[in-house]
Design a protein around this nucleic acid. Structure first.
Lengths: 172, 172
DNA sequence: GGCCGATATTTCGCTGATGAAGTAATAGGC
DNA sequence: GCCTATTACTTCATCAGCGAAATATCGGCC
């Protein structure tokens, strides 16, 4: 069941028609935007499908991974919010759930008692080390259409874009 | 307020640390995946911010644009679902809202009375023609970090990826 | 021509994420 | 040493989107 090809086709046709209709349409940029979002959604769906069996979604895993991959297995909700691109509200829910599952622990910072310190537990580390490896083959497959140099180029462009769109404030 | 740079930095550091820890981690692929999602989320946020003033979200606009850009300004819920990557449930809600706002109209197909035919109205077309142009400058800015050839390369890679990840079924 | 499985869409109940308001603690001016 | 603004997090109400079930229609088989 091919889902993306019709989207891509309709996208190119549609943009062509709209361009005839609305002057000044930045055709190439629209294509880049839509293709990027299309790929993002598809990849996200794949991940979430794989996480469903362990009752997790991508935000949950991302949060857990931020702790797993931090220098000392420790962080705070606000730091995780900026690094995992989440709102505080949601971070509360995620961490509460992870604490309940015993994957992380919550405690208070001594120097600033407003701050909550989150630490990944031994069980959390075990969980990650068991969960990730089975996902590797499929992940490689996703990008198997690229040559090594294409992968490098793609990475370079994605990184460049991320750092560029960063500080652009929205025009109100 | 720079939000993405710390994410990118943490990503590269984090992946480095995890790679030391979990053998077989496809480092490059993980970076590609995370960077792609990061960019997608940031771009989506920008769009949704711009749409908030007109009480719309990106899915709503995408749906409306599929109709605007179709050959005859007409489609069906199921077709829109596949093209706009939406579930039927959500499409019902979106189209109901668009009908309420007078941007599209709903009617029944004569040859198959199960099907609903959605048509963009004159007001819907006006709405789109008024809404889009102010978004062009910012959209161009987003990709202004790329040279023409980089934009072409990026588009080629994105398209290639979309068509590749398409038919890969999830391994259960 | 009536029954059965498939298809198109909607309804319903639930979950994940959000913005706004609330709580708690700190920091800085005076 | 208090008062105010700021910061860190949580709670609450709400909403978009989803899966499963319901509804309506079609198409084919006998």
């Amino acid at each position: 069941m091919s889902r993306l090809k019709p989207c891509v086709d309709a996208l190119y046709e549609g943009v062509g028609r709209v361009a005839d209709n609305i002057p000044g349409l930045p055709t190439c940029e629209v294509l880049l935007l839509r293709l990027l979002l299309l790929n993002g959604e598809a990849l996200l769906r794949d991940i979430e499908d794989k996480l469903k069996p362990v009752d997790m979604n991508e935000s949950d895993l991302r949060t857990l991974m931020m702790l797993y991959s931090s220098a000392d297995g420790t962080s705070t909700p606000s730091e995780l919010c900026t690094l995992a691109e989440q709102k505080p509200t949601n971070m509360t829910r995620i961490t509460t759930m992870l604490v309940k599952r015993g994957l992380i622990s919550r405690s208070h910072a001594t120097h600033d008692r407003r701050q909550v310190v989150l630490t990944i537990t031994a069980e959390g580390r075990r969980f990650v080390r068991k969960l990730l490896p089975p996902m590797f083959p499929d992940l490689k497959d996703r990008f198997a259409c690229f040559s090594d140099s294409e992968r490098k180029t793609f990475e370079r462009l994605l990184k460049k874009l991320a750092l560029h769109i960063d500080p652009v404030p929205p025009t109100p």
